[in-house]
Design a binder for these strands. Structure first.
Lengths: 229, 229
DNA sequence: CGGGTGATTGAGCCCGCTCAACTCTCGTGG
DNA sequence: CCACGAGAGTTGAGCGGGCTCAATCACCCG
C-alpha cells in the first residue's frame, strides 16, 4: 500500500500531495469544508505535542491515539479516535497532545484557517466546534475517574464497554490497538491488562478468538464492573 | 455570616434572592453580562452531576471542587476553581460534574440563557467560551497523565507547583482544601498525601506552618519532581 | 519451517492502601 | 485561665494489588 518514498514524506508534504478523493464534510450538512484524504501507516506520527495546529482531522478508517509522554517514556493515552471521529481541533494555536496512527489509517484533513474563517460567520459551526471540545472534556472527566479511582479489572471492563459502544456489533468487536496501547490508555501495564482479559474470559464474561477479537458474553456484568461513565 | 434560614434555601432560591452586589463581568471587557453575587458555606453543593446547567459561575472568593463519584463513595476531583476562575460552563444542557464549595465561598452567578443569547451575535464571546472549555480540556489532559503515570511524590509535587502558580506569593501559599480533597484530586489516600508532605518537609523542599500554610523552599526541585504539565 | 512480534503466564517484590493510634489545633464554656 | 471535645492531620504496622522481570506461547509472515 505504501512505497518507501511515501513513507519518507513529512506529514505536511503528504497532505499537500494527496488528492481530494471525495468530498468529505467536516460535519454532516456543513457545506464548504472539504477534507483532503491522506493515509498514515501504523505508528506514524500525525502531529506532535506543542506543534502548531495547522490542520484538523477526521478518521475515515483505522484508528488514532492521542497522548502525553514523560521524559522517561511513561505514556498516557488520552483518547482513541475511531472512524467518524474528529480530532486535532484545538482552540489555541498549538496541539496539546501527540497523535499517532494505531493501525494503517486514512484521514480527512482540514485546514484550521478555513474552519476558523467559516466559523466566524457561521454560528452553527462555531457551536459545533465548541460542542466537540466539550464532548472531549466530558470524556476526559470520566477517564480521570477511571484513572484515579478504579481497580484494574474495572478499568478493563470500562474499556471494553466503551469500545463495544463505539465499534461493537452485537457484542463482537475487533480491537485495533495492542495490549500496550490499552495499558497506556488505562494507566496499567500490558501484563495487568492481559491478566484481566484472561480473568474475564475464564469467568465467562467474554470470549477471545485471537488477542484482538473479542466477544462480550455478559455485557450487563461488564457494565456493572466498569461503573458509571 | 449565614442565618439558618439562608442555609436551608435551595441553591436556586438563594440565587434568586441575592442582590447584585456589584457589577461583575463574565469576561474582562465583556459588557452586558452582569453576575449576581451569591454566597455558599463550606461543603455546600452548588450544582449536581447531570443537573440542568441553568447557571455559570465565577469564583470571587473561596474555592470550589468539581468531581465525579462512584456508588461506593470513591471520588475523583477533576479540578479546583479559585478566585477569578469560571466554572459550570457546559456546552450541552447538563452539568457533567458535581460542584461544591471547598470553603466558605462567594460566587458571581450568570444565567446560561443570557450567555447563549449574547454569544449568538458576539463572535468574540463565542470564541472565549470555546477557549475556556479548551483550557479545561488541556488541564484534564495533563491531569490524566498525572493520574495514570506518576507516583505519589510526583503527584503531590505537581499539585504544589500548580497551586503555587495559581495562588502562591513568592513560594508561600495557603491551601484552601483539606488533605482528603487533595487526595481525591490526586488519586491517592489522605495518608499518602500527608506522608508526601512530611517527606518533602524533612528533605528541605518545603516548610509547613500549620497543615495548610506551605512555603516552597526548593521550587526547581519540586518542578522537576512534578514533571511537565 | 524458522524468525519476529505480540500476548500470556508465572514468581516475587514494592508502593501505596488499610486500619489504628496518636497528636495538633482551635473553639467553647466553665 | 484551663478543661474539654471535635475535627483535621500525622505517624506506624502490616497487607495486597499491580508492577517488574523473565520464560513461554501464539500467530503471522516470509
Amino acid at each position: 500500500m505504501y512505497t518507501d518514498s511515501q513513507v519518507a514524506l513529512t506529514a505536511k508534504a503528504r497532505i499537500a500531495r494527496s488528492a481530494p478523493v471525495g468530498e468529505v464534510e467536516l460535519f454532516a450538512g456543513c457545506q464548504g469544508l472539504i477534507g483532503v484524504v491522506s493515509r498514515y501507516p501504523r505508528d506514524e506520527e500525525i502531529y506532535g505535542e506543542a506543534e502548531e495546529a495547522e490542520f484538523t482531522y477526521k478518521v475515515i478508517s483505522g484508528a488514532v491515539r492521542t497522548y502525553k509522554i514523560l521524559d522517561d517514556g511513561r505514556r498516557q493515552i488520552a483518547a482513541f479516535h475511531l472512524p467518524g471521529d474528529l480530532f486535532g481541533l484545538e482552540s489555541g494555536g498549538r496541539h496539546t497532545l501527540t497523535a499517532e496512527a494505531v493501525a494503517d489509517t486514512t484521514l480527512a484533513v482540514y485546514k484550521r484557517r478555513q474552519i476558523d474563517a467559516l466559523s466566524e460567520h457561521n454560528v452553527d459551526l462555531a457551536c459545533q466546534l465548541w460542542r466537540l471540545t466539550a464532548a472531549n472534556l466530558g470524556h476526559a472527566e470520566s477517564h480521570m475517574l477511571l484513572l484515579g479511582r478504579k481497580c484494574a479489572l474495572e478499568r478493563v471492563a470500562a474499556f471494553l464497554v466503551e469500545m463495544e459502544q463505539r465499534i461493537g456489533d452485537q457484542g463482537a468487536l475487533e480491537l485495533p490497538m495492542s495490549r500496550r496501547d490499552i495499558a497506556d490508555y488505562l494507566g496499567l501495564t500490558l501484563e495487568t491488562v492481559s491478566r484481566a482479559f484472561s480473568q474475564l474470559q475464564s469467568n465467562g464474561t467474554l470470549e477471545l478468538s485471537g488477542a484482538r477479537r473479542v466477544r462480550l458474553l455478559r455485557r450487563k456484568a461488564l457494565a456493572d464492573l466498569g461503573g458509571a461513565g
